[in-house]
Nucleic acid binder design. Structure first.
Length: 610
DNA sequence: AGCGGTTGCC
């Protein structure tokens, strides 16, 4: 059998990604002594990498008596493909230290790619300098990878500089730049460049659409997707579908999400792993946790992302016990949790007040799985401690953690201070928060709520003055409700709605019934030091109540009423929604800025813990 | 000769 035959077979195997064939070919090479024939070991390395057998590739690499540039490029690429960019970077120095070789353009491309997956700007810049001074400094492919690296590191202008230096621009370099702009939220730059593209393939559309979803422009992404369908672009790769399912999730539009789901089925991608994962997440975020569980239950293959999606979903819907039992099941079937799984788990504990369980999980993450806690983990953990009233311990964690707490962390702590009536600590925390984000109105609102809860009206007035002086305006609260094809948006105190009379009399009727059942309005959630009755009137017109009233009047009787709110539900509305769910015997689901509330028969899934 | 750069889910 000639060497060229094996070369061909190996390349075929790399394309088809069949690991068993790769191993068989390796055995045959050894039997025929061709494993020493020069191009073959390198091709075998590449084939192992493409078939997902990095460890085999690495073993072969270590045994190779003569390694050249190609061997290095192949082994580094194999680690990138196995999602191990860390190893790519840690191995790289041995190329000159052990083998005395300088990187070529292939090696540069792989190393830059590793930097971009890690978001490692500093190392990326070093490699850039190295490349710039090398004999390969004109290579356009490396420049394309630099575009991507800078874009992923959040430096779109550096990406643009690298892009402009490309001598002959390809679809790939254009796509990298468009995706970079879109991901960085530079919408108009992304659109402008996309329009100027002479040929647009599925890749270019996908890059723009997914970049927009990542930067929070889900609506733009959706319109673009519709335009792409109109242009008749064939969806031969489902990646764009996962982005658009993600757009529905971020946007929390269940009806549209269902339509996209049906499109996924029509195109034949429903059993694709990462599409199913995206669907589980979408249904959970669109507040239909039952549908999320249904999809999860029917998946024949589940990876760590599938499990994490359903665990996070259950946690956000207040089903902490379910999240924790899913975790046990996941570990039992041999799936290793990752850093996101622990965010979901600690979050779950936080929302039912399972303090010691949460502490144990936080420790297990570090000790059993070697995951060093990120700021997000600390945020969840601090939330757990502070919600349950362990404010002192929370304070100690802040002092000892290797991060400066960010604004959401201080905000969570501040809201816990309000909840537990610790005014002194609340004021200290608010000071930190104000120094971090002096322009953010939510800080002032929280601080003034701390004062209001303690009935310190003069201080409330002081905060209001500060707000007025800094021209900080309270972000208007609004609630959306989806009824079949139409979406209605309600602002607090809205009085111009065509159905306002019916809504008003319904709310009044419900109010009377609630008071018969023992409801007492809690006006500590209203800012001003005004007359008691006026405060109650303000609460009465909160946007979530208007949306519920509208839903009760317009939605199909017996169906779940789903509301999306931009801010957090206030404590009084929370009480009211519990009453309403039991009076009208309807389930109400509210997705607010931080979590989900399922109101049913007078109870809420969050156990009044938010 | 054999090796590289663009799109995704928690």
């Amino acid at each position: 059998m000639p060497a060229s035959h094996f070369l061909h077979q190996l390349q075929l195997c790399a394309r088809r990604r069949t690991p068993s064939t790769a191993k068989r070919l390796h055995a045959q090479l050894i039997k025929t002594a061709l494993h020493l024939c020069v191009p073959l070991p390198n091709t075998l390395l590449d084939t192992y990498g493409k078939c997902g057998l990095v460890e085999d590739a690495l073993h072969l690499f270590d045994e190779m008596p003569h390694r050249d540039h190609v061997s290095w490029a192949s082994i580094l690429t194999a680690h990138n493909q196995a999602n191990m960019p860390h190893r790519t970077l840690s191995m790289f120095p041995a190329m000159f230290e052990s083998d005395g070789l300088q990187p070529d353009h292939f090696v540069f491309a792989s190393v830059v790619k590793a930097c971009s997956s890690l978001g490692a700007v500093r190392q990326g810049k070093q490699v850039h300098a190295h490349f710039f001074l090398s004999p390969f400094c004109d290579d356009d492919v490396v420049k394309s990878s630099l575009v991507d690296m800078y874009a992923k590191c959040g430096l779109p202008d550096n990406a643009r500089a690298a892009f402009d230096s490309i001598l002959s621009k390809s679809v790939i370099s254009w796509t990298a730049m468009i995706s970079g702009y879109a991901r960085s939220g530079r919408k108009s730059d992304a659109f402008e460049m996309f329009e100027s593209l002479p040929i647009k393939n599925l890749f270019s559309w996908t890059a723009l659409i997914s970049g927009l979803v990542q930067s929070g422009h889900s609506v733009d992404a959706f319109y673009l997707f519709i335009e792409m369908r109109r242009e008749g672009v064939h969806i031969v790769d489902p990646l764009v579908l996962s982005s658009i399912v993600g757009a529905c999730a971020n946007w929390a539009v269940l009806e549209l999400g269902k339509q996209v789901h049906s499109l996924v089925i029509r195109l034949g991608y429903e059993s694709c792993l990462f599409i199913s994962n995206a669907l589980v997440d979408m249904y959970a975020k669109c507040s239909d946790i039952l549908a999320a569980k249904y999809i999860f239950g029917r998946m024949h293959r589940r990876d760590v992302v599938s499990w994490t999606s359903i665990i996070v979903g259950a946690a956000q819907h207040g089903q902490a016990e379910k999240a924790l039992s899913l975790y046990d099941e996941m570990v039992a079937v041999g799936i290793k949790p990752n850093e996101v799984t622990f965010v979901g788990l600690i979050y779950a504990c936080s929302h039912v007040g399972l303090v010691s369980k949460g502490r144990a999980l936080f420790r297990s993450m570090i000790e059993d799985y070697g995951i060093s806690p990120s700021l997000q983990h600390y945020t969840c953990f601090l939330d757990l401690l502070s919600r349950s009233g362990h404010l002192g311990e929370a304070s100690n964690v802040i002092d000892s953690m290797p991060f400066d707490p960010d604004e959401p962390t201080w905000a969570a702590l501040l809201s816990a201070c309000k909840h537990h009536g610790d005014t002194q600590m609340g004021i200290r925390v608010a000071d930190h928060l104000l120094s971090l984000k002096p322009e953010d109105p939510s800080t002032y609102i929280l601080l003034s709520n701390v004062y209001a809860g303690a009935r310190m009206w003069e201080n409330v007035a002081e905060v209001r003055k500060l707000m007025a002086a800094g021209e900080v305006k309270k972000k208007p609260g609004y609630s959306c409700i989806d009824i079949g094809k139409e979406t209605q948006v309600f602002y607090a105190g809205e009085t111009s709605h065509p159905m306002k009379d019916e809504m008003f009399s319904l709310l009044k009727e419900l109010d009377a019934e609630m008071r018969r059942r023992g409801y007492v309005p809690d006006s500590s959630f209203v800012l001003h030091d005004m007359e008691h009755q006026e405060k109650e009137r303000q609460l009465f017109w909160h946007s979530e109540r208007l949306a519920v009233a509208y839903g009760l009047l317009k939605a199909v009787p017996g169906t779940v009423i789903r509301i999306v709110k931009n801010l957090r539900v206030c404590g009084d509305c929370h009480t009211v929604l519990k009453f309403i769910s039991s009076i009208v015997k309807r389930d109400i689901v509210v997705r607010d800025a931080t979590r989900y509330h399922h109101f049913s028969s007078g109870q809420c899934s969050c156990n009044d813990f938010w």
